[in-house]
Design a protein around this nucleic acid. Structure first.
Lengths: 202, 202
DNA sequence: TACAGCATGTAAGCAGTTACATGATTCT
DNA sequence: AGAATCATGTAACTGCTTACATGCTGTA
């Protein structure tokens, strides 16, 4: 998925600034399985608006810098939907430095291994919080899109991403819990095993 | 983790050609949490050998193209270990087109949603097989490194990556199973929910 | 006959990260 | 006083994917 589709997808949930879109990928629903940095979001939004797939309104804010609030155009919506249909999804990719480091546990001090496992668990915990908190975050009104033609009817708009996001949120939750469960069950035996080996071969 | 460290890590398990290293990331132990393509592996190995971190021997093969079998030098080993100690692990990143597409389930035909879920499950199944098969793949003798000074003693060598890889393999297995379990429990209700909405708002 | 697997390598191109640039406000 | 949050944007750089180039073997 390229960054442009990611931005369009984010805007499907409601109007947002570049900064807010990043937050969706960093803390929100999408954080579980996609990410995007500001350095890629801003150029993408610029290009998207040049192509007429999004529009933006500059919002003055008190005590805050101005905001460019982007909104999907009907064409943007159509384009995004077409993309969804046509995309044959690429392979999932999971990258984890921690797990790579832990592959070499037998070469590392046991304390470091423990720290790595704890760090891994802590991150999973954070992810779990994000996922459970994000539940229904697509339903909070974004005050700007109550009377737009980009939105169909209020009911559809309300349930925006809901069904899909619930399912995926549930999946993410299950995965995080399984991970944390595995760690709580296997951490100690694993570290004990490492110490045993260490004492055999110093 | 940059590609160079990944290659060094792969070679910790025993001598290998570039082609074989890719297989480790594509089908082997590392496939769960890292990946690397040939187009990045070959240049990395070349650079690594220029820096003296690996050596290679050209092996003629019958009915097969020649092979360059790479081996860690003591310095390569030291460098890699130092990297392990010093690296403060970057954030885990999971990217999934399928899950992104499924976030918009309410905009897609139910049949497509089902196909996406099935595809997702199938991939998890493949991953599960890889992980369980990979168990102990670090222990199969690679016939070339029985009498080298890069290896410590046979016992250590035998248990190469074992402890860490067992742990991580177990984790991967748990995660895959949790995913498949979640899907088998929630797929039907989810699709039913989608159909219900669809009939309400055609 | 065509495709898949084994095997290595180069190079173009792109996508995205990181760093830089700017600046106000609020919290510690 | 300094860090963090909000807010936007550009540009250099990097790292990776993809495609190209080559060629043999075994299978469908």
């Amino acid at each position: 998925m390229d960054i442009r589709s990611l931005c369009l997808g984010a805007l499907m949930a409601g109007d947002a600034s570049g900064y807010e879109i990043r937050k969706m990928f960093e803390e929100g629903v999408f954080s579980f399985f996609q990410m995007a940095s500001l350095g890629s979001i801003y150029p993408a939004l610029t290009k998207l608006s040049q192509e007429g797939l999004v529009t933006f309104t500059e919002q003055e804010q008190e005590n805050r810098p101005d905001k460019k609030v982007y909104r999907l155009t009907p064409e943007g919506r159509r384009t995004f939907l077409r993309t969804l249909f046509q995309t044959r999804p690429g392979e999932d990719r999971y990258r984890s430095d921690i797990l790579f480091l832990l592959s070499f546990a037998h070469e590392l001090p046991v304390e470091l291994c423990e720290a790595l496992i704890d760090e891994y668990a802590a991150r999973q915990e954070v992810m779990l919080d994000r996922i459970t908190e994000a539940d229904g975050q697509f339903n909070k009104d974004t005050d700007t899109n109550t009377d737009t033609d980009t939105k169909t009817d209020p009911d559809t708009s309300k349930s925006a991403c809901q069904a899909g996001c619930d399912f995926i949120g549930g999946l993410g939750e299950a995965v995080c819990r399984a991970t944390l469960d595995f760690i709580s069950k296997n951490k100690k035996p694993f570290l004990a095993e490492l110490r045993k080996r260490r004492s055999r071969q110093p």
